[in-house]
Design a protein around this nucleic acid. Structure first.
Lengths: 144, 144
DNA sequence: GTGCAAGCTCAAGTCAACTTGAACGCAAGC
DNA sequence: GCTTGCGTTCAAGTTGACTTGAGCTTGCAC
């Protein structure tokens, strides 16, 4: 950063981008194929990325990992930035999904901690177990 | 339960099991192929499941969905119930993983809520954004 | 005893998110 | 001026968790 003076905004090649994010170059090319991230320029075929692209990649990884969004959803979010209104609906869906997942995972975590501290054997046979395992949303045990 | 008197413990065919869990019969056969769940008996080739198998399936779905465990991990957990000691190590790993994922997801959720309530456009350009997107664990921006 | 729905097996297909391989290009170093 | 190394494209392979399809068997209904 700042190695060269003047107006040269820092451009980095694909392997440097990959290195910074702990990704492979192929992943970045794949994101491009999926329309998520394009190099700011090409020099004799080779891709070069600027700060805006780096930041966009950070955004992509963030949504993908922290919000469990698919690449398609992320593409829609990023496209939504350019005027559409669907992004707000997506955010609402996402928040609801996250709330559910967080609750489920917290219950699972608490239960695992309980098992680890109160049991000598694998959880099979723990009375608490029953409460947990049958409380699944997708299971229609109550019907019929 | 108890439709027939005597010692007939309730046995159900594969499609009934599937229906109770909102799964397809093929999924249950697949779990069997993966060594996770076996019918208590077969009658002229057809699978029959008892309460123990039903319960085991509930356990499998629970770990899979709430704790984000892979079928391989679940198989190991269930195998561990029969004497091994690896299950405790797996539980610890699982708890750590869940704690991390929960934190990440909570941050993502809070951020999305912030964006939804304070912004008219997609999150690009929100100053809070920067704080969030660059705080990713797998990103080795600090190294080299 | 014929038909039909459901089950069975085994192989192959699907989907998302990548990875890998083959075949080639270009620029720098010796 | 030729090799070396990283880049490129495009097609095909991989992994996990299933689903689908073809072809066959079974048991009940009529």
């Amino acid at each position: 950063m700042g190695e060269l003076a003047s107006d040269a905004i820092e451009l980095v090649p694909i392997d440097e981008v990959a290195r910074r994010f702990g990704l492979r170059a192929s992943t970045i090319r794949y994101y491009e194929e999926r329309g998520l991230l394009h190099p700011v320029s090409r020099q004799s075929g080779r891709r070069w990325y600027g700060p805006a692209e780096i930041r966009r990649l950070a955004v992509i990884r963030y949504w993908q990992r922290s919000a469990l969004m698919s690449l398609d959803d992320i593409a829609q979010m990023l496209a939504g930035a350019n005027g559409e209104d669907r992004w707000r609906q997506m955010i609402d869906e996402q928040v609801r999904m996250l709330a559910t997942r967080i609750e489920e995972m917290e219950a699972a975590k608490e239960f695992l901690e309980h098992v680890a501290s109160h049991h000598d054997a694998a959880p099979d046979g723990c009375p608490h177990y029953e409460t947990f395992i049958w409380e699944q949303p997708s299971q229609s045990g109550a019907r019929a």
